[in-house]
Design a protein around this nucleic acid. Structure first.
Lengths: 394, 394
DNA sequence: TTAAGTTTGTCTAGTGAATAAACAAAGATT
DNA sequence: AATCTTTGTTTATTCACTAGACAAACTTAA
């Protein structure tokens, strides 16, 4: 007979409490045992014992004494951020960006390669090369590389298979399996917008929000949903296809099969197509922004127009989710100066009061690092919850 | 200092395990202690002890022996469904529907009143009258009325205040507080579509789905979201305003302030307005269906047209949430014969393959009882989790 | 300077919930 | 009739947490 759900016993209690102590240290370090006990509600003795195990596992360490508040001085605890490292990668359409991070998400090394040929085997070779390079940059440590995470612009299943990455022309690539077989460390493959959402939630502009929608505006539009503080993925991981939400019911056909999709009006592709039609030759986002900065009315108009269409979709998002925060990320974020006011005007004009008053609109704080940092956060979280209680590997 | 999160100790363990045993009995009764141990993974002794407490609390009872499978015959356990009762109400725009249910959701009594005057005080008087009537119908029991739940067509805060019910013309009505002060039992006030979603999930067509979107198509459109098996409410409970999702970016103005809202094309109001324009005098949904049943091409066309627009919005829903199931409920559900094929055609034509293949489209199984049964489910769940471990009241 | 009070962190005894294993009861099978 | 199975209870044990005592280290006030 199959196990229905979680049962509770002392082992689970200890594991959960230990994870809670670790998380508290992660979030509030430097912090003393006494403060942890206060903050978590756990007994002082319990905290002492769990902390001592965490020290034995090299996940945290003591760091001198803090200031007295009228009694014995507290011993401050710090996360042992160099106990292990993550390799976190944003596998984009034209380039691969990879970082080596410690367990606090500090970037120790960063590498980027551009490519034109999107053939899978060639990109995989570049990916291996980039990962190997980052791996070489990692200092000696207790746990070594604790995880490799790849954010990809496509539909990813729960077990890290890329079902479809339209802009790369890839179908059914079991990337997680391939990388695990090659490196023998935990591998996470996730949609680029999902990762971006998590990156902004953990390290970026969304640290205070538990209901956050991240919009990745690039060639197409991807959306990552943080609901109740966690990434929401839908039944099989395919949620967030909001780029293919119809905003014009009899609009033009999209290659996805639908009509009037949001990304036909509000993406980088839409912007460049319109620019082309308006007489800009071989326009790029960067070029259009420059031209706009020089006061070109046509370019300004183009950018503001995309912003307005973004506002239409974001208004829908606000109505659908009643989020605390909507974050605009990826390449079009660079046109912040022109698109954000346009989005705000549209929201102000069209959104329902209750929902509108709750929501904050922001540009991705991590800039082009939202996705890599999200993958880093996934890697770190996985390590702390899954292997955090295992004995030290040497 | 504020408590950050749940800490785990023996008390919590016991409470959770007891709730798990109760839930298992709820879902699989009649069931033996041995089977519960197998299914939950708990030790036989633990189950025995928890079961004996639940029996003492009159929440369950033994009911003879079951069939032997080669050994001692098992003692079967049943939920004591008459240990208490719920009063669950669908407070609609033109009528109030109320039911008295036992703890399994069986309806013991049902009352309905219609009203025209939407003045709050008059409706409240009717509501009191209806609740009092149902209360009188409740048999003597251990726990009496364990909860009163009201589903309302409007925006409801986390603490049961109706912020706005446009079709009733109500604003800022603290209904939960008012009813609690009057009846002194736990009161739940929830949006009608949220309740409908939960009703279909627990007692209706969605019992197998953990990712379910319920669309309540009536004068307007409301949407209830079941994500990861639970009702999703957004930051402050205002999610699911999908009726005000733009599906035509430069469409007509909606009274909500937005443009081209879905409910301007796909609601009962939209249908009736169009019927009027097409020469039907004082049309009602029932009348249009009858006319269509008699083969009137115009009426059929009107209904199929609404179905097609419903399909546009539901396609968006499928892209946004990757749900397992989309359920069509409330009044327009009656036109099932005409609208469902139209919705299906639109989905077939426009939705993305991955998401389309995952999703099931269904009509609400509970018909016009989705909302009341959802409220019953809320009441029962609240009783079992919050008061399930309290001593018996007499 | 001394005494009293505070804060931190450890240690010990005790509690309570779960588990494993033994056991009794009640049936099926051969 | 003897043996095997299944169910449900009982008993002994384990283990994580808690309360409270205690020592160490510090501040404050007389």
């Amino acid at each position: 007979m199959s196990r229905l759900s979680q049962t509770w016993n002392q082992h689970v209690v200890k594991k959960e409490n230990k994870a809670l102590v670790l998380k508290t240290i992660q979030e509030r370090a430097p912090i003393s045992r006494a403060t942890i006990a206060n903050v978590t509600g756990l007994n002082k003795g319990t905290v002492s014992s769990l902390v001592s195990e965490l020290i034995d596992e090299k996940l945290i360490h003591e760091s001198g004494t803090g200031k007295s508040s009228g009694g014995r001085r507290p011993v401050m605890l710090l996360l042992n951020e160099t106990a292990g490292f993550t390799i976190s990668v944003d596998l984009g359409v034209k380039s691969i960006l990879g970082v080596l991070t410690d367990l606090r998400g500090n970037i120790l090394s960063e590498k980027k390669v551009r490519f034109k040929q999107e053939d899978f085997d060639e990109v995989l070779a570049l990916l291996y090369q980039l990962i190997d390079g980052l791996k070489n940059d990692a200092p000696e440590s207790e746990y070594g590389i604790v995880g490799i995470g790849i954010g990809v612009p496509g539909v990813v299943t729960m077990n890290g298979e890329i079902l479809l990455a339209p802009n790369l022309g890839w179908k059914k690539v079991p990337l997680q399996q391939i990388l695990f077989d090659h490196y023998k460390v935990p591998v996470t493959v996730e949609n680029e917008a999902n990762a971006g959402a998590y990156g902004e939630k953990v390290y970026g502009v969304g640290q205070m929000s538990n209901e956050l929608v991240y919009t990745s505006i690039s060639i197409g539009i991807g959306v990552g949903l943080i609901l109740e503080g966690k990434l929401y993925k839908g039944l099989r991981g395919f949620s967030g296809e909001l780029g293919h939400m119809t905003i014009e019911k009899d609009g033009p056909n999209c290659r996805c099969g639908n009509q009037g999709c949001w990304e036909l009006y509000a993406s980088e592709q839409a912007l460049l197509d319109q620019a082309e039609a308006d007489g800009f030759k071989d326009a790029t986002v960067e070029h259009l922004i420059e031209t706009a900065d020089q006061g070109d009315a046509k370019a300004i108009q183009l950018l503001e127009n995309v912003g307005d269409y973004l506002g239409v979709g974001i208004t829908n998002i606000i109505h659908i989710f009643n989020p605390e925060q909507v974050v605009v990320g990826n390449t079009l974020r660079q046109a912040e100066k022109y698109i954000m006011p346009a989005i705000e005007r549209r929201i102000e004009k069209n959104a329902i009061g209750f929902n509108k008053n709750d929501v904050q609109l922001n540009v991705a704080k991590l800039q082009n690092h939202s996705t890599v940092m999200g993958m880093a956060a996934f890697n770190i979280e996985k390590f702390f919850t899954e292997t955090g209680n295992e004995p030290v590997i040497h």
